[in-house]
Simulated scan of single mutants.
Amino acid sequence: MDSYYDDPRLTGDHRRSIETPTGAVTLIGTVHDHPASAFRARTVVANESPDVLALELPPLSLPLFERYAEATRTPPPFGGEASAAIQAAATDRVVGIDGPTLPFLRRLAATLYREDRSLETLPGVVDGLASVTRNAVRCRFAGALAAATSVRVEADSPVAYDVDRTDDPRRQAASERDQIDRARAVMDAFEPSRAASFSDDVREAHMADRLDALRDDGDVVAVVGRHHLDRVAERLGDRLD
C-alpha cells in the first residue's frame, strides 16, 4: 500500500470526526475482536496520537485490557480492538466510557422514571445490567490477579472469525463487511426487544456525555462498536450545537 489510507480496512465507512473548540473527537467503529477492526483501531490511534484514548469498556474492565496490551506481540493476542488501541497509544490517558458506573446508573434510573417504562420492560433491563456488571467485575478480578501474579485469567475470550491478522487486508475487510451486513440483516428481520433498545439508548447517551467531557482535555480517539457509531456521533454532535 502506498499509504495507510489506501488499506481497505481503513477506507470503509467506519470513522466519524467531530471538530470542537477544544479539540477533535474521532470515533472509530469496530466489530468486536475482528482482525480488521483491531488493525483499524491501532493504526488510527498510532497516526492520530490523541491526548485521550476512549474505549467502549466499563472502567472496571479497563485494567485487564491494559494488561493484555502489555503483550510483546502486535496486536496483542487477547483483548481485540481495545488492547490493540491501548498498545498503540502514546498517551497515558486511557479511559473506559461505558457503564456500569454511578453516573450511568443514575442516568438509567432517571430515564426509566421519566419514560415510565412498563414492568414488562424492567426485568429485561435489570437482567442485562446484572450480566454486564458481573462481566465487568470478573474482568476487574482477572486484571488484578494478572497484575499481582504471573497468572493470566482469560475473562474476555476471543471471538473466532474466518480470517486472522495474517490474511490479505482485502479478505479481512470483506469478512468484516459480511459481519456488519449480517448483523444489520438480523436487526432488520427481528426488532430488538424493548429492554435491549432501551439499554442501547442509555449507553449511547452516556458514552456521548463522557466524550463531551473528555474533549476538554484535547484530541480524543474513541473506539466503539460499529452498531453504536452513528448514534454516539449524532448525540455528541447535538451537544455541540
Results as ranks from 00 to 15, higher is better:
Ser118Val: 11
Ser118Asn: 01
Gln179Pro: 00
Pro192Gln: 05
Asp33Met: 09
Leu102Phe: 11
Leu129Thr: 07
Ala82Gly: 07
Asp127Leu: 14
Asp92Thr: 15
Ser199Ala: 14
Glu176Ser: 06
Asp238Ser: 13
His206Asn: 09
Val224Cys: 02
Leu55Pro: 00
Glu19Pro: 11
Ala136Cys: 13
Arg15Pro: 02
Val45Gln: 00
Asn135Phe: 15
Asp164Ile: 08
Asn135Arg: 15
Thr11Asp: 12
His206Gly: 00
Asp209Leu: 04
Asp164Phe: 10
Arg171Tyr: 04
Met207Gly: 00
Arg16Tyr: 04
Val126His: 01
Gln87Ile: 07
Arg152Val: 15
Thr74Val: 15
Phe190Lys: 14
Pro123Ser: 13
Asp230Glu: 12
Thr30Asn: 08
Arg226Met: 14
Arg170Gly: 15
Ala196Arg: 11
Arg171Cys: 03
Ala147Trp: 03
Gly143Leu: 10
Ser131Trp: 09
Asp181Ser: 13
Thr20Glu: 03
Gly79Val: 07
Ser3Gln: 08
Thr20Ser: 13
Pro58Leu: 03
Thr133Arg: 10
Arg239Gln: 08
Val186Thr: 14
Val232Glu: 00
Glu191Trp: 00
Val223Cys: 05
Asp98His: 03
Arg231Glu: 11
Arg40Lys: 11
Ala36Asp: 02
Ala173Met: 12
Ala41Tyr: 01
Ala54Gln: 02
Pro59Phe: 05
Phe39Cys: 09
Thr166Gln: 09
